[in-house]
Nucleic acid binder design. Structure first.
Length: 502
RNA sequence: GGCCCGUUCGUCUAGCGGUUGAGGACACCGCCCUCUCAAGGCGGAGGUCACGGGUUCGAAUCCCGUACGGGCUACCA
């Protein structure tokens, strides 16, 4: 699959598009990570390329297989699919960094053979002291390259003696800058004085991030690295690693950070910060994907509701914003309702079921048996909620049979005032008619006669009946609620309410 | 401290030198609808385009400073 695109030098060239999402399994999939994954996926799908999932689990302290499984679950829930990954296989594996140690060792050996790295025997304490001294004198505090000046004999001698050492990258001393053309940020230029011979392999033999990420991206033939802009400053270092490996670097596209309402980087402090959290609160993946797509990217500046298909047919890095974006839960909530309204009754009941079961309102068996009843609730409740998590609270009064919990304040305001008893009696009399058809239209037509009969305002009548039947002065539409409750339950509730009525 | 990056209504954004008296969306306000709450319809308020200099006939758009914010500056990723 070949695509023409503009290369770093501005020329057009043919290249297979391959992108990757490389999360570290140290926790759940975060909103920021989800957006990075989404943009990578959209870019790959739009350009007919491949999307690779690679797990960066080298931090054995914090990485767990559970987190990896959880991240994969979240990505799938979001509707993203990858062509290669730990679970999907592929010809550039393994896709777990913890299984790639031999690859890193081999590349390091090549770099040694080509004289692009050198051992450093400086201890952390020495480095720390020198760094502090440099900072005190306001000099660049990077490594002073002292071990780079060691003679071959001395190096051989220390190595033979088994002296603890790291391996550092030998930066070219004759360059002035490292330049690259970021697909989002544009031309970036960093002076070489700001870069030092950073460590590729630690004393304990483990490779560092800036090394492994290059090895992996190079070996996996990644064409475009799309990631958070916290890596923008690391990019020059990585370009130097590519040069040492004698491999052309991929194109880079950095995504600005997602912030909380306080302007700080989005985190748990801001409430739900992981995809899993939002799912549990009752957000639809379609809504989350749509919202995330627009957080830092726009189709045309006008469109706000769009499907994954639109995303994958129109996504473009050129339209990715450089400014950090503040995550706005209110807009997500609005968008979620838009998607809930488009869901349809059947899909809604499926999505609602876990909440019903969890809150003890119904069992899976009840739902299967009275499917139509649950589906009838949908059009009433959907325009009054933003998340699935709110549905049970809004509909709980429909489940009590002949009894309902009466809201104290509602009773006080709508049931206790004089005239309520007469309203209840009138309603009971009218509903006692066995011939009355128990549907919303008939109920409304019948009960509409009460205001005139008693000389009361419709509002007063219906609010009294609402509190008697629904237990609260705020509820789903009264007549439809009565239909869902059934005649017996309604009559019983009206009778019970009489003792509170004025 | 040094280096890199960013800065358009409260928020997400459109805008890539003139058709912009800066457009859309969320939130907000009002009206209509109405059995409550919503939803919906209509309308409104809200931006001296961070600030200061330039370049230009003309700048939100290009250049340079300043301020503010973020990132990197680790034997973290």
């Amino acid at each position: 699959m070949f695509q023409r695109f503009s290369g770093n030098d501005g020329s057009l060239m043919n290249q297979t598009i391959r992108v990757r999402f490389a999360p570290s399994p140290t926790g759940k999939l975060h909103i920021g990570g989800a957006r990075t994954a989404l943009y990578n996926w959209a870019f790959a799908r739009k350009n007919g390329g491949s999307f690779v999932l690679r797990i960066e689990d080298t931090d054995t302290e914090r990485s767990t297989p559970e987190n990896t499984a959880q991240i994969i679950r979240s990505l799938r829930w979001l509707g993203l699919s990858w062509d290669e990954g730990p679970d999907a296989g592929g010809s550039y594996g393994p896709y777990l960094q913890s299984e790639r140690t031999a690859v890193y060792a081999a590349v390091l050996e090549q770099l040694k053979a080509r004289g692009r790295v050198y051992p450093c025997f400086c201890t952390p304490e020495e480095l720390e002291a020198r760094r502090e001294a440099a900072q005190a004198e306001k000099r660049y505090s990077g490594y002073d390259r002292s071990c780079r000046a060691l003679s071959e004999a001395e190096v051989a001698e220390r190595l033979a003696r088994g002296t603890a050492h790291t391996w550092r990258l030998k930066l070219p001393l004759d360059r002035k800058t490292v330049d690259f053309d970021d697909l989002v940020f544009g031309q970036i230029s960093v002076p070489m004085e700001q870069l030092d011979d950073f460590i590729l392999l630690r004393t304990d033999g483990t490779p560092t991030y800036n090394f492994v990420v290059c090895v992996d991206d190079a070996q996996m033939r990644i064409s475009h690295v799309i990631r958070g802009d916290d890596h923008l400053s690391n990019t020059p270092k990585q370009i130097l690693v590519y040069e040492a490996m004698d491999t052309p670097p991929p194109a880079f596209a950095h995504l600005s950070m997602i912030l909380g309402a306080d302007g700080k980087r989005l985190s748990k402090r801001h409430g739900a910060a992981s995809v899993e959290d939002w799912r549990e609160e009752g957000y639809l993946s379609d809504a989350l994907v749509n919202y995330l797509a627009l957080l830092g990217w726009s189709l045309d500046g006008e469109t706000s509701i769009m499907s994954r298909a639109t995303l994958t047919s129109h996504f473009s890095l050129a339209r990715v914003s450089r400014n950090p974006a503040v995550f706005d839960p209110e807009k997500l909530a609005w968008m979620n309702q838009v998607y809930l309204k488009a869901l349809g009754a059947s899909a809604f009941v499926d999505a609602w079921e876990p909440y019903l079961v969890h809150d003890g309102l119904a069992t899976a068996g009840d739902i299967a048996e009275r499917r139509a009843w649950f589906e009838a609730v949908y059009p009433l409740v959907v325009e009054r909620i933003h998340t699935l998590g709110e549905v049970d609270e809004k509909t709980a009064y429909l489940f009590g049979g002949g009894t309902v919990a009466l809201d104290e304040e509602s009773v006080e305001k709508c049931l206790e005032p004089e005239g309520s008893l007469a309203i209840l009696e009138a309603a009971l009399a009218l509903l006692g008619d066995e011939a009355l058809c128990w549907d919303a239209e008939a109920l409304e037509a019948t009960l509409r006669t009460i205001p005139e009969l008693l000389g009361l305002k419709p509002r007063q009548v219906f609010q009294a009946l609402r509190v008697a039947v629904c237990g609260n002065r705020v509820s789903l539409p009264l007549f439809e609620s009565m239909v869902l409750l059934g005649r017996d339950a309604c009559v019983e509730r009206l009778e019970r309410a009489r003792e509170f009525a004025g």
